[in-house]
Design a protein around this nucleic acid. Structure first.
Length: 426
RNA sequence: GGAGAGAUGGCUGAGUGGUCGAAAGCGCUCCCCUGCUAAGGGAGUAUACGUUAAUAGCGUAUCGAGGGUUCGAAUCCCUCUCUCUCCGCCA
């Protein structure tokens, strides 16, 4: 949520910023509604004040044993007036909140211009893309050859956009997850965290998946409904919802491995081959909860933490800064890590690292007490994949393939593979 | 799933219709006193919103959440959530 004060005081400037995303903010309509809110609120609070004053004097009169009938008659229609005023105020407030929850975050100044992913700005590349002296296969072919990646079985169980991993490949995914968590906890200062995979709607409003993107989520038909988490960002970030933290508690760094569930509504026809885009996938997520002063640096650091994983795995990748038109709803700035996939001969997203400034904190009411002023201030939140395990698995399979279709296990994962150094067809 | 108890400020804990945003204690902050230490005295100590130049005043809201009764609700009624205890079941 954008600071309502800022919306009020500099609506045109906000509209210009959001226009960079291609989002149209009708500042005049908002300000008109806001003006109406102010009038109604002043009126309502004045009426409430009158009611409180007279209720007190009635109480006092009664205590003195006086006749309170005349006093009761004097406040006769106060109640009805107040009720009407409260009703109109609630309506306007709800309308304002709808608008506010639907506004994307303000972009940081250094977010590049652009309307879609072609506007994204490459920041750096790392690693050599391996040159093959044979025709490289993609992960679907390799998985089938190994007998360890079974989409037919998955579709019999659950339909499309699911995968069944077997044997060495299933273990390789587990190894990857362990490896990533070990790096982040032992070297990058994150606390390993286990969290619920089902959350209620308030949490999703907090991290800004709701109310706007309900179609992307799986909802459990309970009362009230649960949602399957689309990313561990949701439970990890919401850990501090409605909290006022001490300044010395920050920064908080949290890491978790969870499955992620996405309905992928509207992605028909995209990435239908293979396990690039699934309803269910495994991910190690990094979340940082920081002060406003720490947040710019924290984004660079967090991105670096995700990069470390790819470097250790010796997977070539590049870092791109998402442009205004491609950046997510709640993010103020995002770096995507894209890993090289020989099977597709292109870089594909494997991690997305974002700073949300106070956008999520405001929705969650997550604050920190300023050490000097003693006043609560909204924290800044960041998150990034560190990294997506399913896509990392694909990247390893495709980058480490041998002419005979076997897969060499990356050196750093060997300790997690129980002595297996090569995945070979049975 | 069944039965019962509970939810009040940073913490403990009073408060069953009327100057209650809330006693008291603890903690914390500032000041005073005290030749060290210990003790003592005084003042202050929630959050959000509105108004405002203002982190000054003033107003409004908040005693788990939502609704109701009433001139007036922490207090009465209804619904829900959560916590605890016991029973059952279970990985």
């Amino acid at each position: 949520m954008i600071d309502p004060k800022r919306l009020r005081q500099s609506a045109p400037e906000v509209a210009r910023n959001l226009a960079r995303r291609g989002f149209e903010f009708d500042a005049d309509a908002y300000l008109a509604l806001e003006e109406r809110r102010k009038t109604l609120q002043v009126r309502t609070e004045k009426l409430r004040g009158e009611r409180n004053t007279s209720a007190k004097s009635i109480g006092r009169a009664k205590a003195r044993g006086e006749d309170i009938q005349p006093l009761l008659a004097a406040v006769e229609d106060l109640g009805a007036n107040l009720e009407a005023a409260e009703g109109s105020l609630a309506e306007v407030q709800a309308a304002l909140q709808d608008i506010e929850l639907g506004l994307p975050n303000l972009l940081l100044d250094d977010v590049p211009d652009g309307g879609d992913e072609t506007g994204n700005l490459e920041i750096r590349r790392w690693g050599e893309c391996r040159s093959f002296d044979f025709a490289p296969r993609d992960h679907v072919e390799l998985g089938a050859l190994l007998g360890m990646l079974d989409f037919d079985a998955a579709s019999r169980l659950s339909g499309s956009r699911f995968a069944v991993l077997r044997g060495g490949l299933a273990r390789l995914q587990r190894a990857l997850i362990q490896f990533m968590l070990d790096i982040h906890t032992a070297e990058h200062g994150y606390e390993e965290t286990y969290v619920p995979y089902l959350v209620h709607s308030e949490s999703l409003v907090g991290t800004s998946q709701l109310p706007k993107f309900e179609a992307d989520l799986f909802r459990i038909a309970s009362e009230p409904p649960f949602y399957l988490i689309p990313t561990a960002e949701v439970p990890l970030t919401n850990l501090v919802r409605e909290q006022i933290l001490d300044a010395e508690d920050l920064p908080i760094r949290l890491a978790a491995h969870t499955p992620c569930f996405r309905s992928e509504a509207g992605s028909y026809g995209q990435d239908t081959r293979g396990m690039i885009r699934q309803h269910q996938f495994e991910k190690v997520e990094l979340v940082q909860l920081v002060t406003a002063e720490q947040s710019a640096h924290a984004l660079e650091a967090l991105t670096g933490h995700a990069e470390t994983v790819l470097k250790r795995l010796e997977l070539p990748y590049r870092v791109v800064s998402l442009c205004a038109g491609d950046i997510g709803f709640g993010a103020a700035k995002t770096y995507d890590l894209e890993v090289w996939l020989p099977g597709q001969e292109r870089y594909r997203e494997i991690s997305s690292c974002s700073v949300y400034t106070d956008f999520q904190a405001r929705r969650m009411k997550a604050r920190v007490r300023n050490a000097e002023t003693g006043k609560p201030e909204f924290i800044h939140t960041l998150n990034g994949s560190g990294v997506a395990a399913g896509r990392a698995l694909i990247a390893i399979v495709e980058n480490y393939q041998q002419p005979d279709g076997s897969i060499q296990v990356p050196t750093v994962l060997e300790p997690y593979m129980g002595g297996t150094t090569v995945l070979a067809p049975a």
